[in-house]
Design a protein around this nucleic acid. Structure first.
Length: 260
DNA sequence: ATAGGGTTAATT
DNA sequence: AATTAACCCTAT
């Protein structure tokens, strides 16, 4: 009776974000049970995590001064066939990114009119890049979060298995892979699209060559509708791909290629 | 156990 | 009154 509403604290929010970044969105139970976030999210249930993440995602999606298409009105059976299945994505991180960007990070001259949500992700990736090398699962999760790619943990497990081998440090290997298996999915608009798409396709094909592929196609189709986000996203993918190809860190591409 | 839908409470 | 956020219920 005396429980009005238990608002989420910053600690809990951060824990949730970290958990999602670490284990991936969807593994609420795992995140909640993780000893790292357990003490913080002890009073939250997996459902609460999901709900919170949902709210966060929705807020982040419609938080760009974009059209405020609000049509949650189930009270209009006449006229108005279908507004627009605008899919949401890119919950990203809500870190402090305002104040004043002193200097450009490195390149990305296209960082002008677009908020570049991937920049944050890239930065985060660079930050969490440990001397030991980022974990494959982390990168995998990144991609999963970015484009809502559905990567099962089975893939992660598989990728982690061969990763133990130190001889995986190849300098250049999958670079000329191209692997434009699904290049015909949608029209390519930028050069980076090829590489990025190839990477995504490779990863996707590595494990999900069954019904999951179908979902991927659908997802790709949806993404194709959003040119801006797609380009930004692909840029990130390309960056990751190049970076990994260089041999800086173990990449899912190499592992995937190995498995292939 | 997770995803989605719907409801209630608090804030503006 | 409208929006947001937490909570609850149901289906898969």
């Amino acid at each position: 009776m005396g429980a009005p509403k238990q608002k989420w604290t910053s600690e809990e929010e951060e824990a949730l974000r970290r958990g999602v970044l670490k284990h991936g969105a969807g593994k609420w139970r795992t995140i909640q049970k993780d000893p790292e976030f357990s003490p913080v999210l002890s009073s939250r249930s997996n459902i609460d995590l999901k709900d919170k993440w949902r709210n966060l995602s929705f807020s982040a999606s419609g938080l760009g001064s974009r059209d405020k298409q609000r049509v949650p009105r189930p009270k209009a059976p006449s006229s108005s066939p279908s507004p627009s299945p605008q899919l949401l994505l890119l919950p990203a991180t809500n870190n402090v990114a305002e104040a004043s960007p002193p200097e450009d990070c490195e390149k990305s001259p296209q960082d002008d009119k677009t908020p570049s949500p991937n920049s944050m992700i890239l930065e985060a990736l660079g930050e969490l890049k440990e001397p030991n090398g980022s974990e494959v699962t982390t990168i995998c999760n990144f991609i999963e979060i970015d484009k809502s790619y559905k990567l099962t943990d089975s893939y992660a497990k598989r990728a982690l298995a061969p990763m133990k081998d130190p001889s995986l440090k190849k300098k250049d290997s999958a670079k000329s892979s191209k692997a434009a298996k699904g290049q015909g999915l949608f029209t390519a608009a930028s050069p980076a699209l090829g590489a990025a798409e190839a990477a995504a396709t490779k990863v996707a094909d590595a494990e999900a060559k069954s019904h999951l592929a179908n979902e991927h196609m659908m997802e790709v189709e949806r993404i194709g509708k959003m040119a801006e986000e797609t380009e930004s996203l692909l840029e990130l993918a390309s960056e990751l791909y190049e970076r990994c190809s260089r041999g800086e860190v173990l990449t899912i591409l190499q592992v995937a290629h190995r498995e292939f």
